[in-house]
């Protein structure tokens, strides 16, 4: 099977600034690969290198088996893309903007324009000038341009940007359908962690131009820290009981007791027994998984503890 996207020790420098620093990644055909990073992490620069818009300072890029830069423009028939905030010709209507793209992609039949308008829910705005569209509909138009020619590879920079919650769900289902039903490969960048976890098969985490971690969703679930949250009527007294029992416990400002040692997380019933015997029965006892945000911040070293990987 041909790898959809492959980069090898990819570096991009702008003067003294290194935007991408030795990035090596591989995206298999048919998978949804999320490229996760903070603003300025190097996501968009990487995407522009994948699309041949920016030349690497060093390293190699292969897209659908073709090394970039390539003189074979037909490669781009197989790629649909959305880079950063979508923009369109403001004096042209939605339909005309898509017609422009259709004409510049020879071989795409005229019916493709109406089809993609329907698929992206733009029918009500088809004859409206794009300068008057909301940000969400501009985003839909950007996605429509990417999907117009039904490419086997989609490279999407923040595809959920500007969409309302219903729109986010709709686009998520659309991308999942494309990947699962039609075998389309989706390479998408995002900084919305929850969205990524729901959509991606694999996740690459980029920070300051470097790939910190590459993992599948199951690994992500395993890597996220768990903790036991305990509440009691007298939080301080309950904390003292648990400390005396040898648990690593701490009290938060709002009176919750946090236990992070595996003995407590694996056996919350033991914790409850200790508290009941001491006369401070728990009013709440729950094992919680670390949110994606703290996990991500911990990984990139922005939780105050330094990088984790």
């Amino acid at each position: 099977m041909v790898t959809a996207i492959e980069t090898d020790k990819l570096i991009k420098r702008y003067g003294p600034v290194t935007a991408v620093d030795g990035l090596t990644l591989r995206v298999d055909q048919g998978e949804i690969y999320a490229f996760l990073g903070l603003n300025g992490a190097g996501k968009t620069t990487t995407i522009r290198m994948l699309l041949g818009m920016v030349k690497p300072t060093a390293g190699q890029v292969r897209v659908l088996g073709a090394s970039l830069p390539t003189g074979d423009r037909q490669l781009w028939n197989a790629v649909g893309y959305l880079v950063e905030t979508p923009h369109a010709y403001p004096e042209l209507t939605v339909r005309e903007n898509l017609e422009v793209m259709r004409r510049l992609r020879p071989g795409v039949e005229p019916a493709a324009v109406s089809r993609v308008i329907d698929r992206l829910g733009l029918a009500a705005y088809a004859d409206r000038r794009t300068g008057t569209l909301s940000l969400g509909n501009q985003q839909r138009l950007g996605l429509a341009k990417a999907l117009l020619h039904t490419p086997p590879l989609l490279i999407l920079d923040e595809p959920a940007n500007g969409l309302d919650p219903a729109g986010i769900v709709e686009i998520r289902h659309l991308l999942l359908d494309l990947a699962r039903q039609e075998g389309v490969t989706v390479f998408m960048s995002s900084h919305i962690l929850g969205e990524v976890a729901r959509l991606a098969d694999r996740i690459g985490i980029i920070h300051q131009g470097q790939l910190l971690q590459e993992l599948d969703v199951a690994e992500l679930e395993r890597n996220r820290r768990r903790r036991l949250i305990v509440r009691a009527h007298d939080g301080r007294a309950a904390l003292a009981v648990l400390l005396n029992a040898g648990f690593a416990a701490s009290l938060t400002a709002d009176g919750a007791i946090i236990l992070t040692d595996s003995a407590a997380i694996e056996r919350p019933d033991e914790v409850a027994t200790q508290l009941v015997l001491a006369g401070h029965p728990p009013t709440r006892l729950a094992v919680e998984q670390e949110d994606l945000e703290p996990y991500f911040l911990r990984l990139v070293g922005l939780d105050g503890a330094g990088p984790d990987a």
Binding site: L51, G52, M53, R73, V83, H87, A88, L104, P106
Partner: peptide, 18 residues
């Protein structure tokens, strides 16, 4: 100025034709 150039750069139509 309209940031539309990015849509013209990775197309089957060569940039020289554009």
């Amino acid at each position: 100025a309209d940031y539309t150039v990015k849509d013209l750069l990775a197309l089957p139509t060569p940039r020289s034709s554009l």
